[in-house]
Amino acid sequence: MHGFANPARFLRLARWMTPLLLVTGLVLVAGSLAWGLFYAPADRLMGETVRILYIHVPSAWLGMGGWTTIAIASLVELVWRHPLATIAARAAAVPGAVFTAICLATGSIWGRPTWGTWWVWDGRLTSMLVLLFLYFAYLALANAAQKDGIGAGSRVTAIFGLVGAINVPIINRSVVWWNSLHQPASITMGKSAIDPAFLWPLLICALGFSLLFGGVVLARMRAILADFQAEARLRRRAQRELATGRAMSSVEGAAT
């Protein structure tokens, strides 16, 4: 793992992996959503609204996956002080927040015809909304820390990333711990209560969205890394020019 923390090695990998993940993800998402929208059957109870789940469920997984990525990268940053872990955590925050927002919006749209309401303050929906607010707070903290460079502010952001991870198991278990309109998990490790006619487009869609998530994280990591490198080069250049200017003025002072 330490080998991948080398920025030059990371860039060599990311240069070909970013377009590969994005293009493959787009193809899989387009194909599976067309499958879900036009070829998958309507559900006996949910009717046509079952098609919303091909977007809602992968978004929910990736919203939680985004914070899990932040927590793991924050732990690596705090324990091994890898600068790339800091960058990875920051890069995962935006796609995580976007997928959480999509999950909340599509869930609300699904809830109106299915439950008869846009929103209920139950455990699953509320903890997912808390996750969105945690993402906003993390992004604000990370932006403030970025102005100070990678230092004490970055460690505060990493600690927040770790502490916020407590919400992920709460979201996961919320339908078990509290009474909820939201149904319990239909897919668990190695088991599924979903008919294959719905399951296959859902799994392919989840794979496609996951590849897009990975591609966006790599693109954002490259952007953050390039910004750091450009800033470091400009700073070195300014210091060189300052040193040259001082030397010139001291030579001129000695001559007069």
């Binding site: 787009l26 046509e48 919303i52 809602h56 935006v94 976007v98 749209i109 699904w110 954002r220 952007a223």
Partner: peptide, 27 residues
Amino acid sequence: FVIAAYVIGIGGTLAMVVWSWIAMRRA
């Protein structure tokens, strides 16, 4: 409802992908 959910889901995802790609190229 299905169309609204797809517009939000696909639109949000595409906007994020394009924005991240352009930000990366500019940086």
